[in-house]
C-alpha cells in the first residue's frame, strides 16, 4: 500500500518537473527574443580606472588580472571573428591587466604584437604597444625578451631602425640575453629592414612564444617572407628561360623540361604558384598567404 503511494508520488513529481520545464523552455526562448534588443549593450571596460580597480581587488589582484587578461583575449578574438577593423578596448584592457599584475609577461608580449600590428591584424597603435612594453621592462628588468619585442615594433611596424637598434643594444646588456641581440643591434643599423633579418626575428618570436595566437601570427609572417623569396626566385628562373628561348614560359612544366625547375612549385600553404604570360608569379586564388604587408618596400 505504502509502496504504491510512494510510486504514485514519484510519478507525480516527475510529471510536475517535466510539465514545469515544458513551460519554462518556451518561456525562456520568448524572453530571449524580446530581450535581445536590451542585451545589445556596447562593449565596456566595467571599471575604467586601473588604480581604483587594483585597490578594490582587496589583495586578489592576481585573480582579477587573469579575468581581465581573459577578457582581452576574448575581445581580440571576437573582433577578429566579426572582421572588425578596430580594437578600441584592447589597449585599456591590457593596461588594466598589467596594472593588476605587473609580472604577467604574456600580456606585454601579446600587446606588443597585436596593439602594434596594422588593422585588420591588430589595433594599429604601435605607440600604445611601445608604452605597454616600456612599462613591462620597468616592472620586469630581468626579462630581456621584452627588449626584443620593443625593438621589433620599431623595426617592423615603424621602420625606425636607429630606435630598433638601440632597443636591441639595450637588451643585449642583460647578462642572460641571447648573443644574437647584440648582432641584431648592429645588423639592423647597417642593413635596415632586409628580408633575412626579418626572417630571423620572426623565427625567434615563433620559437620563443607560448602563446598560440602570437605563434600563428609569426607563422603567417614567415609564410609571407618565404613566398616573397619563392616568387623572386621563380621570376628569376622565368627570365632565364626567356633569355634561352626568346619567349616567356607558358607553364611550369616547360621550365621543368628546360631543367630550370624540379617540380610544380607551391607556396607555404601548399597551393601551387601561378605563372602569368609575362613571366610574373602570383599566388593561387585559394591561397591565404598575404604579400601586401611588410616592414618596408625593400623587404618585399
Amino acid at each position: 500500500m505504502n509502496s504504491l503511494k510512494a510510486q504514485r508520488g514519484g510519478w507525480q513529481t516527475a510529471l510536475l518537473v517535466a510539465g514545469g520545464f515544458a513551460i519554462l523552455v518556451p518561456a525562456q526562448m520568448a524572453l530571449d527574443r524580446r530581450l535581445a534588443a536590451y542585451r545589445q549593450t556596447p562593449e565596456m571596460l566595467w571599471m575604467p580606472s586601473r588604480k581604483v580597480l587594483r585597490t578594490l581587488s582587496l589583495g586578489h589582484n592576481g585573480l582579477l588580472a587573469d579575468i581581465y587578461w581573459t577578457r582581452a583575449v576574448q575581445y581580440f578574438g571576437r573582433q577578429r571573428i566579426l572582421r572588425r577593423r578596430e580594437y578600441p578596448l584592447l589597449a585599456p584592457l591590457l593596461e588594466i591587466t598589467v596594472t593588476l599584475d605587473p609580472q604577467l609577461l604574456v600580456a606585454y608580449r601579446f600587446g606588443g604584437v597585436f596593439l602594434a600590428a596594422p588593422p585588420p591584424l591588430g589595433a594599429g597603435q604601435p605607440e600604445k604597444a611601445i608604452d605597454l612594453l616600456r612599462r613591462g621592462i620597468q616592472a620586469n628588468p630581468d626579462q630581456w625578451r621584452l627588449w626584443h619585442d620593443l625593438g621589433f615594433i620599431y623595426y617592423w611596424e615603424l621602420q625606425d631602425y636607429p630606435a630598433a637598434s638601440a632597443a636591441y643594444l639595450e637588451g643585449s646588456k642583460h647578462p642572460r640575453a641571447a648573443p644574437w641581440m647584440q648582432v641584431m643591434a648592429a645588423v639592423i643599423l647597417q642593413k635596415g629592414g632586409d628580408r633575412a633579418t626579418s626572417r630571423f626575428l620572426w623565427t625567434e618570436i615563433f620559437q620563443s612564444t607560448e602563446d598560440e595566437t602570437i605563434r600563428d601570427n609569426a607563422r603567417m609572417h614567415l609564410d609571407t617572407l618565404r613566398a616573397l623569396d619563392d616568387i623572386e626566385e621563380l621570376e628569376r628562373r622565368a627570365a632565364a628561360f626567356r633569355d634561352r628561348t626568346g619567349r616567356w614560359p607558358q607553364s611550369f612544366q616547360e621550365m621543368t623540361a628546360a631543367g630550370l625547375l624540379e617540380g610544380l612549385p607551391a607556396d607555404p600553404q601548399g597551393h601551387p604558384y601561378q605563372l602569368q604570360p609575362d613571366g610574373q608569379i602570383t599566388l593561387h586564388p585559394s591561397s591565404e598567404v598575404k604579400l601586401d604587408y611588410g616592414p618596408s618596400p625593400e623587404a618585399r
Binding site: G62, L63, D66, W69, T70, Q74, F110, D211
Partner: peptide, 24 residues
Amino acid sequence: LFGEISIGIQKTILLNVGLSSISI
C-alpha cells in the same frame, strides 16, 4: 576549466584562483 578559456596562463590562473579561494 577557467584556464582553458584563456591562453598561455593556465597555471597562473589555477594558482590565482586557488590562492584566492583559500583566502576568501
